[in-house]
Design a protein around this nucleic acid. Sequence first.
DNA 1: AAACCCTTTAGC
DNA 2: GCTAAAGGGTTT
Length: 294
Amino acid sequence: MSVDPACSHSSCSEEPSDPEDMSPMPVIYGSEENYFSLQISSTEMHHTETASLPSSVDLPVQDSPDSSTSPKLELPGSSSEEGMGKRGESKIQVKKQKVRTVFSQAQLCVLNQRFQKQKYLSLQQMQELSSSLDLSYKQVKTWFQNQRMKYKRWQKNNWSKTSHSVTQKGSTCIEYPGLHSSCLPGFLVNPSGNLPVWSNQTWNNPAWSGQNWSSHSWSTPAWHSPVWSSQPWGAPFHNSGEDSLQPYVQFQQHFSGNDLEASLETVGENSKYLNTPQALDVLNYSVNMPPDGM
DNA sequence: AAACCCTTTAGC
DNA sequence: GCTAAAGGGTTT
């Protein structure tokens, strides 16, 4: 099988990618996202490799400190040109060329799997995930956002396909091809966490060790629930309302341990429509339940 | 203020 | 064409 994903060798041991903004980030290499993440890509996997470095130019670019969470890690004005390049005073027409990061299969795998379970992550979750994957918070956030849109589109298409024929609640016909296609066996996550099985390389993040994942991170009220009610995928509930919540409760009662994982995929389906903090909480709780029993 | 949704831009 | 990322409008 040669299932030696991404970094089985050793090329990805370092991954100085780009933690860029995150706050809790223990690893802050530079400031730029992935600009200079000189990657090796010797194998075939391009990790977070930064697409292509424009060799010349000092790309004023990017970095948009998104600061999503940790507001300004880089002082405004001092760090790079970003300060003035943006909307300072001299509208430099330096068109910041977009840097397209290419996530590695491993990263995508984890992201996808996570997405299947949760369409929305809390701040902390995103932070942890980002640091685990060596990505920036912004990247994770953006990825999830894009995924949601993608999923939405997919759902729409899918919906038109099946809607006329099946519209019942138990119609779990098609599954969102989130990772199936790109996830190699070796990318499967552990039942305890969400890291790939082979995660002993870059994925060694204390945050995922099982401490934070235990519970509080999920129940944190930090959840700022978006407009669920208006969510396209939340709408369908008008029909089944509570019906949607049932699966979750039962789910956590019936499953436990390894099965959880498998079942999650199924449940995950539902979760697409059920993104209420509560539901997620239940789901997540189960998901993170250590197979050993805490 | 920050995250979200949605659209658009742009690299691959 | 896919999708990461930017931009703009909205919501809390």
